[in-house]
Amino acid sequence: MSSKQDILGRIRAGIRERYEMPSLADLQATVFPDPLEAFITASLAAGSKVVEISPSSDINATVRELFPDAKVIASNLPEINIATINPDTVGSAQELNGTDVGIIRGSFGVAENGCFWIPQAMKEKAVCFISENLVILLPKTEIVNNMHEAYRRVNLGDYGYGTFISGPSKTADIAQTLVMGAQAARSVTVLLV
């Protein structure tokens, strides 16, 4: 406790002039004539695959078609009936290791950079990272222009965790060579519903 008061005391002693918070209302952030088209372009650039499907089509069949060799499929989504493991009911997060395909839901996408917001909606968030391939169900009507609009919509939910993801895990740490598939998902497929 004393460190806290000492630190705050030193800060107060050091501040000479208090600066005003700028207004952000006049910020002229980029908007797109067709946010969905911009989102798709940015997603592809970030390494995501994008598949548009009609609301009446069977998502399970689409996932099977995309990943014919997948054995372990993890999901807690009610519309997914091909899941072999459920991140809500596993005994430990470690059990999700070895997942070929994880299927999760995104709340909305961001046109300027191809990311989508994933609030934790499962007990073990490991499924979002540990799966070799990640499939995101995203409503195509829910695309915002930029991060300013995005952060007005961010909601972490009860688990108190959420993440923006754009494309597969990647690195350029060895000689600046871009490699897809560092520590988390090696491929990301956005299913626009």
Binding site: A46, E112, N113, L156, Y161, T163, I165
Partner: peptide
Amino acid sequence: PTTTYTSHF
């Protein structure tokens, strides 16, 4: 345009 992950804990 963004990092792959922007995570909120």
